[in-house]
C-alpha cells in the first residue's frame, strides 16, 4: 500500500495541476489515450470473433493455437518488443514485402495490441465456452439467424466476462512499457506514452513523473472498480442460472 499512498503524499495539488499543464505531459496523456483506444478497438474487433471461433469449434491443433494466443501473457515485455522488431521491424522478416513499422505511433498501437490482446481473448474464450449451446439452438428455432443468435444471445450472456476481459486488456495497454520502448522508441508526441514519459521525466522533473503516476493510479483504480462492479452484478443476478 505504501508506494501508492506515497505517490499522493509526495505530490501537492498545486504542483499536480502545473505539471499536468506541461506540454510534454499533456502530449503523453493524449498519445496514451489515442493509442490505447485504437489498440482496444482492434482487440475487440478481431479478438471477439476469434475467441468465439476457438470456443465453439473443435479442430486439430486447437490447444496449440490457444497456447500461442495466450503466450504474450507470460512473455517478458522486452522479449515481446524484440519479437515485434524481428517480425515487422525495419530489418524484420516481413520488411522485404513492405510490412515494417517502428518509431511511429502505429508501432505503439501494434505493441499495445500484441501485448494486451491475450488478456481479452482469454477471458472471452472462457465466457463464450460457458454459454449453453442449447440456448443458441433455442434462438435459432425462434427465427434468429446464426449472426442474430450471436448478437442477441451469446454476446449478452457472455457480457460480464467480455467487460472484465476488456478492462484487463485496457489496464495492460495503458501500463505497457517494455515492448513499446523496444519496438517504437520514446519520442515525445509520437511514441512517448504515459509510462515512457514517467521514465523519461523522473530524473529531469520528478513532479511531472509524479503527476502522470497519479493519473495512472486513478485510472487503474477505476478499471479495477468497474470490473468488480460488473462481477458483482453477475453474482447478484445479471447472468447465470436458468440451467438445471
Amino acid at each position: 500500500m505504501l508506494p501508492i499512498v506515497a505517490i499522493f503524499l509526495e505530490s501537492s495539488p498545486s504542483e499536480l495541476v502545473s505539471s499536468l499543464g506541461e506540454p510534454v505531459v499533456q502530449e503523453a496523456l493524449w498519445l496514451s489515450l489515442k493509442t490505447t483506444a485504437i489498440a482496444l478497438a482492434l482487440i475487440l474487433l478481431a479478438g471477439t470473433p476469434a475467441a468465439y471461433f476457438l470456443a465453439t469449434r473443435r479442430f486439430r491443433g486447437r490447444a496449440v493455437v490457444i497456447t500461442l494466443v495466450e503466450l504474450p501473457l507470460v512473455l517478458p515485455p522486452a522479449v515481446a518488443g524484440i519479437g515485434l522488431l524481428a517480425a515487422i521491424g525495419p530489418a524484420g522478416i516481413l520488411a522485404p514485402i513492405g510490412v515494417s513499422f517502428s518509431l511511429s505511433t502505429a508501432a505503439v498501437v501494434i505493441a499495445l495490441t500484441f501485448v494486451a490482446s491475450p488478456f481479452y481473448v482469454r477471458q472471452a474464450l472462457a465466457s463464450f465456452g460457458a454459454v449453453d449451446g442449447t440456448v443458441v439452438d433455442a434462438a435459432r428455432t425462434l427465427g434468429a439467424s446464426e449472426a442474430e443468435a450471436f448478437a442477441r444471445v451469446v454476446i449478452p450472456t457472455a457480457m460480464p466476462g467480455l467487460v472484465a476481459g476488456t478492462a484487463l486488456a485496457l489496464g495492460r495497454a495503458l501500463g505497457e512499457f517494455g515492448a513499446t520502448l523496444m519496438f517504437a522508441g520514446s519520442f515525445v508526441g509520437v511514441t512517448q506514452t504515459v509510462p515512457l514519459a514517467i521514465y523519461n521525466r523522473f530524473s529531469v522533473q520528478f513532479a511531472d513523473a509524479l503527476a502522470l503516476s497519479v493519473v495512472l493510479v486513478v485510472v487503474s483504480a477505476a478499471i479495477l472498480l468497474s470490473v468488480k462492479f460488473v462481477r458483482g452484478g453477475e453474482a447478484l443476478g445479471g447472468v447465470g442460472g436458468a440451467r438445471g
Binding site: V135, D137, A138
Partner: peptide, 20 residues
Amino acid sequence: LAPDLRRCGYVFQEYALFAH
C-alpha cells in the same frame, strides 16, 4: 432449410430460457 426458417415450436429439455 436453416432452423430459423422452419416454423417449429421447440421446448427444450431444461427449457433453455434466455437468462439475460
